[in-house]
């Protein structure tokens, strides 16, 4: 007998498809936040399916910190061309030039926090009223508290103590002019789900996710890749290592992991055996116990 039981990956996909379509139905000018990382790649892949054979009914927004891996930008541009998508870029460098934000100083300086201002400015400039992000609840303890439809006030802030109840699959996207929503279609996916789905769907991934040799510096256990944005401190040195990235963010704060995994199957094995969370390699989360919550309150991704 045919079993009418949707397996969990397909159920997660069905949920994400529904959420993305709901965004298009409920908002006037949605946008998909595309970082070039695996979560936004999967989200975009599902978004494409959601409207096929029609094209994507919204543009992609990339917040360019100016500290991106060149591989990320190349992958982004190829994907945009292949999907015939529209791409909007918000530049942190411009925000700095315009005096909207000031560059951080010190050895752990990063543009990660600055992205929030650029993001909110870009949303305002283009009049986007909903931004879909690839955030997953299993990534981090403050993210574990997010709704699918997350309301932001006119300052783009999140109020975690006062979130709207979210019942069943009835998403309330009502808001006033000037307010907006963040929507997280992949809320219920885990890192393992994402990789299993990439394998199942045969989604091409940026080379950064696969094992390769690269010069890195070990800074308090975080392996940072060599670039013009990292200045060596006393007693530090570049060493050639066999690494891959588990998450891809800004070059100034994304740590690499020693790895031999050179295929999706091997990555899955590695993720299954991992004893550290993927964000364990992110210097931006190590700033304080509530670093993520604090950034999210201000309007971070």
């Amino acid at each position: 007998m045919q079993s009418y039981n949707l397996k969990h990956i397909k159920e997660l996909e069905a949920e994400s498809l529904f959420v993305i379509r709901e965004v298009v139905a409920q908002f006037e000018k949605p946008v998909l936040l595309f970082s070039g990382g695996k979560d936004s790649i999967v989200m975009l892949h599902i978004a494409y399916k959601a409207f096929y054979p029609a094209g994507l009914p919204f543009p992609l927004l990339h917040i360019d910190t100016g500290h991106n891996f060149p591989e990320t930008l190349q992958y982004r541009d190829e994907l945009v061309a292949r999907l015939k998508a529209r791409l909007v870029v918000g530049s942190v460098q411009e925000s700095i030039n315009n005096g909207r934000v000031a560059e951080e100083i010190g050895i752990n300086a990063s543009r990660n926090v600055l992205q929030t201002v650029t993001l909110l400015d870009a949303m305002e400039e283009h009049g986007f009223d909903a931004a879909m992000g690839g955030g997953r609840r299993d990534e981090e303890k403050a993210r574990a508290k997010e709704r699918f439809f997350s309301h932001r006030d006119e300052f783009g802030q999140w109020d975690p103590k006062n979130q709207r109840p979210e019942l069943w699959n009835l998403f309330n996207g009502k808001k006033y002019q000037g307010e907006h929503f963040r929507v997280f279609p992949l809320s219920n996916w885990t890192e393992m789900d994402v990789w299993q789905y990439i394998l199942l769907e045969n989604i091409p991934m940026p080379s950064l996710y696969f094992s390769h040799y690269r010069e890195c510096v070990n800074r308090k256990g975080v392996l940072l890749a060599r670039s013009e944005f990292i200045k060596l401190q006393k007693d530090e040195k570049w060493e050639k290592m066999k690494i891959r990235f588990r998450t891809i963010g800004d070059m100034s704060c994304t740590g690499a992991a020693l790895s031999d995994a050179s295929s999706i199957e091997e990555i899955i094995e590695e993720v299954a055996a991992a004893r550290q969370t993927e964000r364990g390699t992110r210097a931006d989360d190590k700033r304080s116990e509530t670093a993520m919550e604090d950034r999210k309150r201000e309007g971070y991704f």
Partner: peptide, 8 residues
């Protein structure tokens, strides 16, 4: 606990 936490 104030708000729901989702875990997997």
């Amino acid at each position: 606990t104030i708000d729901v936490a989702y875990r997997y």
